[in-house]
Each structure stands twice: as structure tokens, then as C-alpha cells.
């Protein structure tokens, strides 16, 4: 694979080399420089919703501005401050907004502590209202970009925005794979397997899936829907999935 050009930039007084095309946030993380972020995941395209990764930059030409580091590609001669006073005060308000939105989220509490924020001046929402969901859309983006089924999405606008299946009803598109559960940064989506049943509970809708039994060990290991989907996209037979991964080894 052809390697991209390298650029030199400075993050928090550290001079770094980075591949052109990478985002500031990626380069910072590769170099163990902490920038908070809740809506990024390497599996999906950057989105820029949580705004916590805001940094202050000065370009080689001397232009100063605030940018979201998950979306701003590195460039030659860039100087980045990840935690200036201005950034810290914006981040403080952002985390306070999240503390009020999801008062029972341990992840938000921990992040707030890490950012040196203890309380929020805003009235707390009832914890059953948003159910730990910060609307980062990682679940919906993974469902679309990685799984490719777009079974869940964000509905409504503004403060009324919610993550849901279409019309809050069981979705024919959902294969019950649990990718959304895996990427959710605040553990707002739950998944539980009981016997031959899997239940996925999003903040405002839920679904049940029938699991297939492994012919060898007898454990229920994968939703039937997921098998159908994999068989379809890979051109294999659904019967190929009668044995679970562990027993196949």
C-alpha cells in the first residue's frame, strides 16, 4: 500500500510526525496525548457530535481557531493546544450539559471527574427520560456503516431526538448482532440472552430474537436473523452455521 506523505505538527509543545490524511485526534491518541471524546470509534467515520474533542489550533499561516480534532486533518506546521483555558471552559459546560442529561451515567460521572468538574448547574433530567443515551449516534452509524442494515436511527429533531427503530416498532432490518451494544460509550443499550431468546433494549425500543442452538455443544449462540444476513451477504448456506465458533475450532 502506498504510504501517504508525512507532515510535522506540534501538539501541546510536542513535535510530532504524522501521516497526512489522519485526524488530529488519531495522531494525539497514537502519541498518548489525551483528548476527551465520546462519539468517535475507529470502526466508523468521524461525526463531530459530542464536541468534547475540541482543540485550539494555529495553522502554518498563523490562523487561529477552534476545531473538532476528530474531523480536522493534520497539516504541515499545525500547532495544536488540547487543553487551553478556553477549551477547558467550553468542555466544562459540555460535560455539565451531559451530567444533567444523563444523571445516572457512570461514564459521564467519571469523565466529568477526569475533567475536574464536580457538579452541574442545570436541573437533572429524570433518569428514565434519556436512559444514559447521549445521542452520539455511534450505534446508528455502526449499524449503517459496518453492519450495513440501518435498523436503528435517530428520529425527531433537536431536544426531542431519540435513538430508535422505525416508529419504535420491531424492525425487520435488525439482525440482533449487538454491534450497537458494543460501541455504545455510555452503556445505554442492553443485550441479554436467555435460553433460545436474545433481547436487545435500546433506550426507547426493544426487540427479541430467536437464537440458534449449536449442534455440538447445545448452547444457543447466534440469532437466526444474523445467520440469514451473513448467509445472504457471503453467499453461503444458512446450514453452515449449525456449529458454534468454539466447537468448530
Amino acid at each position: 500500500m502506498k504510504k501517504n506523505k508525512m507532515v510535522t505538527l506540534t501538539i501541546d509543545s510536542r513535535k510530532l510526525q504524522a501521516e497526512e490524511g489522519l485526524m488530529i485526534l488519531d495522531v494525539a491518541r497514537d502519541n498518548n496525548i489525551y483528548i476527551p471524546s465520546l462519539c468517535t470509534n475507529e470502526a466508523v467515520e468521524p461525526y463531530g457530535a459530542c464536541r468534547l474533542c475540541l482543540v485550539e489550533i494555529t495553522t502554518a499561516r498563523g490562523r487561529e481557531r477552534l476545531v473538532t480534532s476528530c474531523l480536522y486533518p493534520v497539516e504541515e506546521g499545525l500547532t495544536v493546544k488540547t487543553n487551553s483555558e478556553r477549551i477547558a471552559s467550553v468542555r466544562k459546560v459540555l460535560i455539565q450539559l451531559l451530567m444533567a442529561r444523563c444523571p445516572d451515567s457512570e461514564v459521564i460521572q467519571d469523565l466529568a471527574k477526569r475533567l475536574g468538574v464536580e457538579t452541574t448547574p442545570f436541573p437533572l433530567e429524570d433518569k428514565n427520560k434519556n436512559k444514559k443515551c447521549i445521542l452520539c449516534a455511534l450505534c446508528a452509524r455502526v449499524c449503517q456503516e459496518v453492519v450495513g442494515v440501518s435498523a436503528i436511527s435517530l428520529v425527531n429533531r433537536g431536544v426531542n431526538r431519540q435513538l430508535a427503530t422505525p416508529f419504535f416498532e420491531p424492525s425487520e432490518a435488525c439482525i440482533g448482532c449487538g454491534s450497537c451494544v458494543y460501541v455504545c460509550p455510555t452503556h445505554a443499550i442492553a443485550m441479554e440472552d436467555t435460553g433460545d431468546k436474545r433481547e436487545v433494549r435500546w433506550p426507547h425500543s426493544q426487540m427479541e430474537f430467536k437464537l440458534r442452538k449449536c449442534k455440538v455443544c447445545g448452547s444457543y449462540w447466534i440469532p437466526e436473523r444474523q445467520i440469514e444476513h451473513i448467509a445472504q451477504v457471503s453467499g453461503t448456506s444458512p446450514d453452515d452455521y449449525d456449529v458454534c465458533f468454539s466447537c468448530r475450532e
Binding site: 459530542c50 450539559l97 435517530l154 433537536g158 431536544v159
Partner: peptide
């Protein structure tokens, strides 16, 4: 503007609601 915010980014979505409150 609170009613017209798309809701994608946190400060606009939550911040406008708090401003209005």
C-alpha cells in the same frame, strides 16, 4: 432555534434548551 436545532451536536441541542429554561 431550540425547536429548529437538528440535534446532532451537543451544545446546540442541550445548550439551547438550557438557555431557554
Amino acid at each position: 432555534l431550540e425547536g429548529e436545532s437538528c440535534g446532532k451536536c451537543l451544545p446546540c441541542r442541550e445548550g439551547l434548551k438550557r438557555l431557554r429554561e
